[in-house]
Simulated scan of single mutants.
Amino acid sequence: MTKFVRGEVPKTRPFQFADLAELLLLVGDYDELSHGDLEAVITQGVPDSDPDEKSDNTDHAVEVNAREQRYIKGCFNHLTYRVNAFDDIYPFEMDQEVLVKKASISQQNYVYLFLLGCSRLGSFNDLKFRQVCAHLFVEIAAQALKKLMSANSKIWIFDANSDDRRSHFTTNLQESLRILAREMSERHDEMVVIQQEPSGDGGLDIVGIHQFPDKGRGYLVFLGQCAAQKDGWPKKTLEPRRLNTIFNFSHQPYNLNFIPVLYRNITGAWVNEVYTADCVIVDRLRIVKTIYQNGEGLSLKVFQKVKSCVDKMASFSG
């Protein structure tokens, strides 16, 4: 039986607590969410690490309740931020601090819901489905990157199992790296290339290149890593930089990290700017805003996959 596993209740991290609240509406655990409902979620769920509670076990029940109310208020403040930040893209409505899912879901709403699900894929207890979602997230990231580049730029998915690897590059990583060097108009270190395992993607998920119509060295290059996960993505922010040992870049390519997480506080700033060093974070907000910046959206083929995944997410029981 497919099941949505709540797991840890991230009450001390408003951006993740808000995700859990939205997902509980998506999977149908609740028809609406109020302050009282989130109190029940905290009580029933697996607690996260709250240093206040660990260090103050003798707190009076009233003080503990006051702390829980602050966490719930923080969650609702983040949900309110989302209502304003995403506007029509947001698939939920807030009325008197009660959150409900919209009765009619648009294409933009579906994309938001898919990214929401990808931000907590571990809660869906179907490994094959999680893998499908992770691969689809890379496709969406590639379409977002395409919107950031000129119309005649080339975008490839470099993931080992992608169609682009089979058709344009090869399934052999070493040969793919040689081809990539030519596409970027850069030089590679053959000694380092042959040290690589023939399988895998070398820490690179998507590539975007604007190729100039001349023989000069060095094109405009975007290297992207995609991380459809709740917590582990900061470890991937600098993975494309490892390619500096393989390619003798004439200049540093743009390093992009695509994440489905809405990694923001209620002001719209990053939760922790340490993880934005030497890379451009493209989170949920930037992905959907980029995809719909000209009102075009996803290709029909990709959107149909998105809708199918979201419909399946909604079928998981809590």
Rank of each mutant, 00 (worst) to 15 (best):
L285E: 14
P260G: 05
F169P: 09
A314Y: 03
L238Y: 00
V64H: 06
T43G: 07
S176H: 01
K235R: 05
D56S: 13
L79T: 02
A18R: 08
K215T: 13
D278W: 08
S317V: 11
G216D: 06
L26N: 02
R165W: 07
P213K: 07
A314H: 08
V302C: 05
L298W: 04
W156K: 12
G224A: 13
R67D: 04
H168I: 12
L33N: 05
C118A: 04
D214A: 11
N244S: 03
D189P: 13
L223E: 11
A18D: 00
E190Q: 05
L148F: 15
T80A: 11
Q143L: 08
Y110G: 08
L262A: 14
I281K: 07
Q304I: 08
R70Q: 15
V271Y: 04
A21L: 06
G318D: 01
K146F: 13
T2I: 15
E175N: 13
S308T: 15
E93P: 00
Q131A: 11
Q211N: 13
D50G: 03
Q211W: 14
S119D: 04
I287R: 08
F4S: 08
G117T: 02
N84G: 15
F249N: 09
L256R: 02
R284T: 02
D231M: 01
L148V: 14
N257V: 13
L24W: 13
A134F: 01
N84T: 11
E93W: 08
Q211S: 14
S55I: 06
V274A: 14
R13Q: 10
K307A: 14
Y112A: 09
C226G: 09
Q196M: 13
C309V: 03
L262E: 15
G203E: 02
P213A: 10
I266G: 04
K312V: 04
F92V: 06
K102L: 11
V310L: 01
P213E: 04
Q131P: 04
F4P: 15
F158E: 07
I140S: 00
L220Q: 07
I72F: 07
L136A: 03
V41K: 08
V302F: 03
Y71E: 04
Y30K: 15
L220W: 10
T267Q: 13
S49K: 01
Q96C: 07
Q196F: 10
L116T: 15
A277M: 14
Y254V: 09
N257C: 12
L127P: 11
L298A: 13
N294P: 01
V261A: 04
Q252F: 09
S119K: 00
E93I: 09
